[in-house]
């Protein structure tokens, strides 16, 4: 029956074409989105290697020279006698202390919620969940009022203490200690006569390196780039953080603001890009290194590990 063979062949061709077209569409969407994701960062990495004229004349994704980076850095250092160094230094030490206090307090509180008899456990957990879902920006003005009344305004501690409140970390630790470590382990330690602290240090802590990585990751990324909170909490140039300093640089460069006198500032496109890169690169690196932590952390409330 030649006609039947004919139909089935055309049918098969049609199906094959449809499947190839589908695959093509699928891969195109995935790859186009990847290109749009990577190109802006690629541009930012390459921009400081060029001079201001090369930034316009060369291809946007062309590489200038390694000397370009050095040159951009030297120009950046001219701004207020190397103020950028202070900002980098501030960002590093504020963030380090925040990460330590935030992770330490979250680890302990999560353990207390999961493994000890804590009064008002349920309401405390609900308050923590609410505080974790409400974006930190919503607290900035109330925190400003509080910090002023404590007399901490314009002190590094205004940024450090407010940044150390870490309800999301408490939640992560709580979920970890109540699902990953079997309750029998805590009970066994207690029967052996270990107190709460003993159980925590001998049983819980050694088993929680994975958790610590996750806590550190989210605490670091949130605080390293934070703008509004440090912006409101301090007002002297030498106390600012790198992201806030970047905002200051914006208003003193003709690169982003033609209103600024064109020849007065050594800060142009490549220099501002270099400053931006210093904010973005640490985040980019920890993100790429901890891709798995992100998924586990955000979904830890509902996905069993």
């Amino acid at each position: 029956m030649p006609s039947r063979t004919y139909v089935s062949v055309s049918d098969r061709i049609q199906r094959a074409v449809r499947s190839v077209a589908g695959k093509l569409l699928l891969w195109t969407s995935l790859i186009v989105f990847a290109v749009f994701s990577v190109v802006p960062m690629l541009w930012l990495i390459l921009a400081p290697s060029k001079t201001q004229t090369e930034l316009i004349d060369l291809d946007p994704l062309a590489f200038g020279s390694f000397a370009g980076y050095v040159n951009s850095w030297n120009n950046l250092m001219v701004f207020q006698d190397g103020r950028i160094i202070t900002w980098v230094f501030n960002s590093i030490w504020y963030t380090t202390i925040i990460v330590i206090i935030a992770c330490g307090s979250a680890l302990l509180a999560g353990y207390a919620l999961a493994a000890t008899r804590l009064p008002f456990r349920k309401p405390l957990l609900i308050v923590t969940l609410v505080a974790m879902i409400v974006p930190p920006v919503a607290f900035v003005l109330p925190l400003f009022v509080q910090i002023s009344s404590l007399g901490l305004y314009n002190s590094p501690w205004a940024i450090i203490l407010t940044g150390s409140f870490y309800p999301f970390g408490v939640f992560l630790a709580y979920i970890y200690f109540s699902t990953t470590i079997p309750h029998e382990l805590y009970d066994a330690a207690r029967i052996d006569g270990a107190g709460e602290w003993g159980t925590f240090f001998r049983i819980a802590m050694p088993l929680s390196t994975g958790l610590l990585g996750m806590l550190g990751f989210f605490a670091f990324t949130a605080n390293w780039v934070n703008f509004f909170l440090p912006y409101v909490m301090v007002n002297t140039g030498e106390l600012l953080t790198l992201p806030v300093g970047l905002g200051i640089l914006f208003s003193s460069t003709p690169a982003l603001n033609p209103g600024v006198g064109a020849n007065s500032s050594p800060i142009r496109g490549p220099e501002i890009a270099l400053a931006g890169l210093m904010v973005a690169i640490p985040i980019l690196l920890v993100f790429l290194a901890s891709a798995r932590l992100i998924v586990r952390g955000v979904l830890s409330g509902s996905v069993k590990s």
Binding site: V38, P40, M41, G276, I283, L284, F287
Partner: peptide
């Protein structure tokens, strides 16, 4: 990994 890259471009950056 490519999709995670723009997460580092936030706020002032």
């Amino acid at each position: 990994l490519a999709y995670l890259v723009p997460a580092s471009i936030t706020g002032a950056v």
